[in-house]
Amino acid sequence: MTLWQNYLRPKTVAEAVDALVHAPGPALPIAGGTDLLLDLKQGRHAPVHTLIDLTFIPEMTLLELRGDELFIGAAVPVNRIALDPLTGRHAQALAEACNLIAGPQVRNTATLGGNVAHALPAADGTIALTALEAQAEVAGVSGTRRMPFTSLFLGPGKSALDKSAELIVGFYLPKTGKGQASCFKRIMRPQGVALPILNCAVWLEREKDIVKDVHIAVGPGGATPFRATEAENTLHGQSFNSETLTRTLESLLGQAQFRTSARRASADYRRHIVGGLFMNVIETAWKRAE
C-alpha cells in the first residue's frame, strides 16, 4: 500500500492552492514532513492521494524585512529562523524557541508553518509567535488574507484553517523598536528531543522603569495558545519591581488553566514551576529592552 499517489512541487502559492482544491483525492501540503511522514508511515494518518511540497515556492521560503514588519515564510526551516540575524534582532523570542524545537536534524528541515499548523497549545514556535503578536498570511481560492495569529486556533490539534482549501503562506511580525525586547524559555527534561513540560514567551516595551506594554504567552496554559491577558493588564503602565511582578504572577495563575498530561507532567507541577520560569523570562526581556 502506498502512502501517497502523487507528489507535486508547485512554484507559486496560487498553484499550490489550486492543487490542494483540485486534487482527485485527499491532499495535504507538506514542508519539512518531520511529523507528517511519520504519521503516514506509522498509520496515524490515513494515506493521501496528493502531497503538495511547499518548499519550492520562493515566496514561502523568504525571511526578510517588509516595511515595518519582518516576514517569515511558512516553509522556512526553523534552524534558519534560529540563526538568522534578522530574527535575532526583531524576534529574539522566536529565534530562541526555534533553537529548542526537537533535535538538530529535525530543525534542519522542520518548518514554522508546520509547527503552527498542528495547532498544539504548547508548540515552542507557536508560543513565541503568540507573544510577538504575529499575523498569519493565509492563502485560499479567493486570494490571500491576514489573520491575527491566535485566531488560527480552535482547540488542541484543531486549526481554524480549512485544510482542504487553505495554506499558511507566512507570518508578519512587528519590527522591534527602541525599548522593546522579547524572550522565550522552557522547562523540560534535559534531553532535547521531547515535548516541553512548560514554556513561556514575553515581549515588552519599557520606558525607564515603567512597563509601557507587555505580551505574555504560556504553553500549555489552555486549550489554545494561552495569552495571559489579565497578567498583562496588571503589569501595564506599572513600574517593574518585585511587588508588581508578584501581582502579575498571581493574575497569571488565576487565569491559566493547567492540566495533567498522563505521560508528562501534573497540573500541580506546572502551577509550581511556572512562577520561576515566568520571572526568569520577564527579567531577561526587561534587561534586553534597556
Binding site: 527534561r189 534531553q191 521531547a194 515535548l195 498522563a262
Partner: peptide, 26 residues
C-alpha cells in the same frame, strides 16, 4: 529519567517519545 506508565494494564508510554531514555544531554 525513565518513567514507565500504564493504565489498567495498557502501556501509556509505548514510544520513545513518551518513554524517555537518557540522551547525551542527560
Amino acid at each position: 529519567v525513565e518513567d514507565y506508565r500504564t493504565e489498567n494494564g495498557r502501556v501509556l508510554t509505548d514510544q520513545l517519545s513518551t518513554y524517555l531514555i537518557p540522551t547525551i544531554r542527560d
